[in-house]
């Protein structure tokens, strides 16, 4: 079993924090782990992403590269709606996508006065990626920042809401239990909010 995850967004959204929680849970549950962070844009509002590859195989016998092979990403969590589209070629047609309803137009696009994909365009693109084979769509669309602001007055907890929503649809056995057991009461509530509501299923 290999479970491949990408969490992405922009600096300051808690991408690395969410990835760290998932990694710790996976190791605690006895899985092996590879992957890498791209933290280049952290604090400078640039692109941030984390690749998490979880396996129950022996990595000595069946090693995993730090990158996900094309069409093998089982769960994509895009905390900024457009950022996940950078990983379009990695998406497993049977995978799950979580799209946070938030677009931040890059400053280079502003200066050049260029068009930028809208939320609606992003959603259509994500649906096209995971509607293969006639299965029901697996895009979870939610306003994680808004939900976190309303429930906790802390928009930063949007990362846990999105993580909860994503793992509610698919996660290797034992991971959700390990993950939630380490959260504070408020973080747990945020994770559960995402896990139970799953945003708007499209």
């Amino acid at each position: 079993m290999i479970f491949n995850v990408v969490i992405t967004g922009i600096g300051g959204q808690g991408v690395i924090t969410a990835a760290g929680l998932l990694r710790f849970a996976a190791i605690t549950a006895g899985y092996r782990l590879t992957g890498a962070d791209n933290r280049g844009g952290a604090q400078r509002l640039g692109h941030v992403s984390a690749v998490i590859r979880i396996t129950d195989d022996d990595c000595e016998i069946r090693p995993l590269a730090p990158e996900i092979p094309k069409q093998n990403c089982d769960l994509l969590i895009s905390l900024e709606a457009s950022e996940g589209l950078r990983f379009a070629d990695l998406i497993n047609p049977g995978g799950t996508i979580v799209m946070n309803r938030r677009i931040t137009i890059p400053t280079n696009i502003r200066r050049a006065r260029l068009p930028y994909p809208t939320l609606a365009q992003c959603l259509i693109a994500y649906e096209a990626l995971v509607s293969g084979g006639g299965r029901t769509s697996k895009v979870i669309e939610l306003d994680a920042d808004g939900m976190a602001s309303d429930a906790f007055r802390k928009p930063i907890l949007g990362n846990l809401i999105a993580l909860g929503a994503g793992l509610s649809r698919s996660a290797p056995p034992g991971i959700v239990e390990r993950l939630t057991s380490r959260l504070s009461e408020e973080e747990r509530a945020a994770f559960d909010l995402g896990f139970s509501k799953q945003g708007t299923l499209t």
Partner: peptide
């Protein structure tokens, strides 16, 4: 058909 996402520059904080 997926829209191409332009590079997102990191800029001054």
């Amino acid at each position: 058909k997926i829209p191409e996402i332009p590079e997102r520059e990191g800029t001054f904080c």
